[in-house]
Amino acid sequence: MTAVVAVADVLAVLLLAAGCFFVVAGTLGLLRFADLPTRLHGVAKADNLGLGFITAGLVVHALAHGGGIAGGGGGAGGIVAKLVLVWLFALLGTAANSHLLAAPARPEPGAEEKPEREPGPGPGPETTPEPEAPATREAP
């Protein structure tokens, strides 16, 4: 293994670790934040940053190691292009999604969406709304 590849690997691992950190942060936000706008905030920002870092890590990996056996579309170049495309799609999608999902949450006179409740027949997680209930399953 040449020194360049070794450096690239270290860089890739660092980028991937950073990506993981942000994705976990976004997920925690989704679980723990109090209401929809703040949750959206956490998801939209942190998660895309996380995906960006992971993508960057994989790009570095692809550039260092080449396309491998199944590059598809011409070795590392094709891989990098596809990875960047995935990230751009995610950015676009999240921007639009957040806008659509948050629209009714903005204060508009007389139009406030209440969380629709599905009344269950007995006590259970559905009937005891507790927006800040502790998560039972959490990411490490």
């Binding site: 994705v23 989704l30 929809l36 959206l40 998660d47 995610a90 999902l101 629709e116």
Partner: peptide, 29 residues
């Protein structure tokens, strides 16, 4: 898996879909 908790619990449909959007991104990653 953690996102599943929010998707399953809600409370509003928008919360569930927010979780699903997150899972789309995470799943893609």
């Amino acid at each position: 898996l953690a996102g599943l908790w929010r998707a399953a619990r809600g409370p509003s449909t928008r919360d569930r879909v927010t979780a699903f959007a997150l899972l789309g991104t995470t799943g893609a990653a």
